[in-house]
Nucleic acid binder design. Sequence first.
DNA 1: TCGATTTCAGTCGTACACGACATAAAACAT
DNA 2: ATGTTTTATGTCGTGTACGACTGAAATCGA
Lengths: 144, 144
Amino acid sequence: MYEQLKLDNQLCFRLYTAARLIAGAYGPYFETLGITYPQYLVLLILWEKDQQPVNDIAKRLYLETNTVTPLLQRMERQGLVTRVKGEVDTRQRIVCLTEAGKAMEEQAKDIPNQLGAEVVKHVSADELKGIIPFLDKLIEGLRD
Amino acid sequence: MYEQLKLDNQLCFRLYTAARLIAGAYGPYFETLGITYPQYLVLLILWEKDQQPVNDIAKRLYLETNTVTPLLQRMERQGLVTRVKGEVDTRQRIVCLTEAGKAMEEQAKDIPNQLGAEVVKHVSADELKGIIPFLDKLIEGLRD
DNA sequence: TCGATTTCAGTCGTACACGACATAAAACAT
DNA sequence: ATGTTTTATGTCGTGTACGACTGAAATCGA
């Protein structure tokens, strides 16, 4: 039995599990809104700045375009966004919020704090603050 | 623009991204072995203790059985495990390593350290140590 | 300027991940 | 003992994720 092969010694497993469980904790909120976690991330990006090409959204999420494209197509079917041909660069597809997509920001604005309250039951806000730079360095380092 | 809705203020997005990027960093190693990241986790569990029912594996990974079952079926097709009916409780399916599955432990034993060396290029080993209890508390709290 | 290269978005195939549901077997209650 | 409930596993449908690849458009290079 190699010590380094124990599941409990794997940082990666903890990250993978924590990410899934937190996404799961968002579940009830997203169900109400009729969206999923990755769709929520796309909305966050578009609420910050509307009308972005697929590529910018994908890069921001560190996802491949072949993941983001179907995701956006589903969001378009649900009436949250539209995808219009770029005028300057016709290869691009510019993703724009619909009125329904814009309106959802009001519905979503309390979600982070409610989730935060849930999380802080288990870990202190200070610990939470400490984790952020660590994850940022990790992400930056593995970005490729 | 609600401050709490900025992507950069979301802990969850960092966890989600870090988990995906680390799993991606494992990619080349797994490709050599012909397995995936979740399959690797199952192998870790079985290398610790062979012959476990589906449910124990699922609980250990915090996954649903309807995720683990197909995963095990694929691993069976690849000749890494067998799934035999439980003798005490015939509802159970006991998952057993094949010789190929056991042999893979030798092939995998250096992966964690090699990955660790990669990660430590970007974050110190101390920071890494500090993150573990945080993630454990988070996971325990959200376990449900 | 025009052929080679790169970039943008997309399709396709495979593998998770999970909610809803199904089925059989074990455990429980009366 | 037998009907009810719970448990273990599984199927099915939907939605990510990503590698390999494609087609069209922009860019680059000689």
